[in-house]
Amino acid sequence: MNPFNYSRSSAAAGAIQSLVKEPQAHLLAGGTNLIDLIKMGVVAPERLVDINPLPLKSVEKTAAGLHIGALATNSEVADHPLVLQDYPLLSLAINAGASPQLRNMATVGGNMMQRTRCNYFFDTAMPCNKRVPGSGCGALEGYNRMHALFGASDHCIAVNPSDMNIAMVALGAVVHVRGPKGERTIPFGEFHRLPGDHPEKDNTLERTELITAVELPASAAAFRNHSHYLKVRDRSSYAFALVSVAAALDMDGTTIKGARLAMGGVAHKPWRLHEPEAFLKGKPATEATFRQAAEIAMQGAKAYRYNKFKLTLAPNAILLALQTASA
């Protein structure tokens, strides 16, 4: 592993200052992705600023909804009584990802900052515009079985690997960040970005900004009784998604009052399905309705040489997730 310097921050302002002062400094939280990337030579920070002492671990109810500190671990969030009660979708999604040991280490903020698991990104012998801008995309004509169906560009077809993100975007979470100029909020759906001409940028966070919290709106608790996270993968546990679906319904008898739908494993960002959501509203919860929603969801999908199977897998996964959520 490349050497680096280490410092510890116990105040957000200090951590942000370190990022301002040193362009090659990275923040360190759970480290489950960053340490791996450093070992693989994918990134080589000159300094790690350990932000674990920051007081950003609390999970608590606020007037707006549920405030989740950026340093709360994935396990703490998934097992939290308020999450289980009001936002079970988030708990299901988090527990579908990684392993218990990793979830005990990984934080909410770190999970959002997780880099793609594209093999060409990890393999420093291969071209990758995300790792080395301008070097090309190895996946485009390569072994692209795990890659995107939506929103990709000629420069990058990688997908965001997080399960947590899919539930967060479906539930309409809001990200709280703090930088040298103060605090701002970013809707979760706008936090991650599509690759476009700059696949090296995964998200819209400025380099000198710190994620402080994620807030789930109180209104999203309306989906608490009818939600499901379906993850399809190569083995039954501990693998990244080929396709995943977060489905949440607000039901009035057999009629859908409101719907939230998002997909994972298909885009550079958690893929919220606004049009199928609008279509589902007011419809009866039947197989025919769900099939139509899935058809709408797949409009504009573009497959590559090895991931064509996802064109069939994804709508089937949407159907099954909606059926399970509505039951």
Binding site: D36, K39, L48, D50, S99, Q101, L102, N104, M105
Partner: peptide
């Protein structure tokens, strides 16, 4: 694996199981 994928390095930190290969000693 030394990459958090196999679990052979599992230890408890303050009673919680983690992968010690992905945790820096200094933290």
């Amino acid at each position: 694996c030394d990459r958090g994928q196999c679990g052979a390095c599992t230890v408890h930190v303050n009673g919680v199981r983690i992968n010690s290969c992905l945790s820096l000693a200094v933290t």
